[in-house]
Design a binder for these strands. Structure first.
Lengths: 217, 217
DNA sequence: CTCGACTGTGAAATTTAATTCACAAATCTC
DNA sequence: GAGATTTGTGAATTAAATTTCACAGTCGAG
């Protein structure tokens, strides 16, 4: 389960939050000051920080910028008094994910935490380059055809592919082959035959999956 | 399992082929002439036809063109004597999938049949339009972002999305929303809020799958 | 060696996708 | 209901993807 750090100088609020979030199944740690928070952040690995902006000593904003700088994957949710919502908005501009103003309902808090976690799932999970690359390769019908051909025939040379796809201008095929090669999806052996790499086989599996997925109404 | 029709005037070859392919798990039917073959083709539903070109009466070529015309999904594999390979090549130009010349090795035959089946899987299976549509929608990062936002937030209005994505010109967002709407991936309610359709939720699942798939090394 | 088929490059042209801009109707806010 | 905000359209522009074309080196067969 996700690990949450609660940062607030108010001991009572800390234990309230600990109780609520603990019951919801999160692993909780607490810090009573900005200083203590940063120590914990640098020694352990949190997913979310619940951060009070108004604290004596190092204030929340400083903690926020430090976290953004050194642990950009950690999501920060600001806790703020109703009267100082504006500060929270500033905090969001500096990279906080959301804020919650005191007093708050339990459900409201949990909803925000859940949403931020979901958000993090995407941001941290997808290595954009690969996804981008994959989708670009698959989005062109000629490239898909080439992949399928190479899957079926194991290896083919330029003109074989060109004829099989019934394309007049072979340099058109060259163009797509080059893109696929650059993406590491296909390779070429000494005999000039093109064949699928391991990545390429994955693309085929993906296509099959997509197919069956889309067919399932 | 796939259903294969064997068309050959040579009774011995018919039973040899039946034995080999039957053992390999295919469902087999036989025809001794072109006429008989067409009757069977029009009454039952085959995946593959093994067709001898040289037969008395209606010859294989005629059967081939008839099949191409009325049952374009059926794959035809030509059986030909070694001496008449040229005819087989002509047949392939007319739409046959492959040929095998007598005498042949069992493994050779099975390999060709398997390959042709695999080929058919793709050609018949993927409804290109949906695939096209899906991949186009997912291939743009802004559209992916929008989908993910709508997934997390359930529903959002134009300017909410625009701000959350930190895009200056809202009409840019309008552009992508329109595309997504046309693809049936999102819809809009009376309050102008955009939300994911069932299709849209599928896209999200696909993205998650893609993610984990690509992450798995 | 010479011809024809094969593989490929690079620039130019074309097509398609995406962005920007000027503007306006609808809706909200005070 | 005046002014700001939101939602949207359509044309013009820009950018990106794809196609076409002219050409050239390589390779195998006769």
């Amino acid at each position: 389960m996700k690990k949450i750090l609660i940062v607030d100088d108010d001991a009572e609020l800390r234990s309230t939050l600990t109780e609520i979030l603990g019951e919801a199944g999160y692993r909780i740690d607490k810090a009573a000051s900005g200083r203590e928070a940063l120590d914990k952040i640098h020694s352990a690995d949190f997913d979310i920080i619940l951060l009070d902006l108004m604290m004596p000593g190092m204030n929340g904003m400083e903690v926020l910028s430090e976290v953004r700088k050194t642990r950009p994957r950690i999501k920060v949710i600001i806790i703020t008094a109703f009267a100082t919502v504006n500060n929270a908005v500033d905090a969001i501009k500096k990279g906080a994910s959301d804020y919650i103003s005191k007093p708050f309902k339990i459900e409201e808090l949990l909803a925000i935490v859940r949403r931020v976690i979901e958000e993090a799932r995407f941001e941290n999970g997808i290595r954009k380059l690969d996804l981008e690359n994959t989708l670009n390769s698959l989005s062109n019908p000629i490239r898909r055809d080439i992949l399928q051909l190479l899957h079926i025939r194991h290896e083919m040379r330029l003109m074989e592919i060109t004829r099989k796809l019934d394309i007049e201008d072979h340099t058109k095929v060259v163009f797509h082959l080059k893109l696929l090669k650059e993406s590491g999806i296909i390779k070429q052996n000494k005999e000039k035959s093109y064949f699928l790499t391991k990545e390429g086989e994955k693309m085929i599996e993906l296509l099959k999956f997509l197919d069956s997925y889309l067919s399932a109404h």
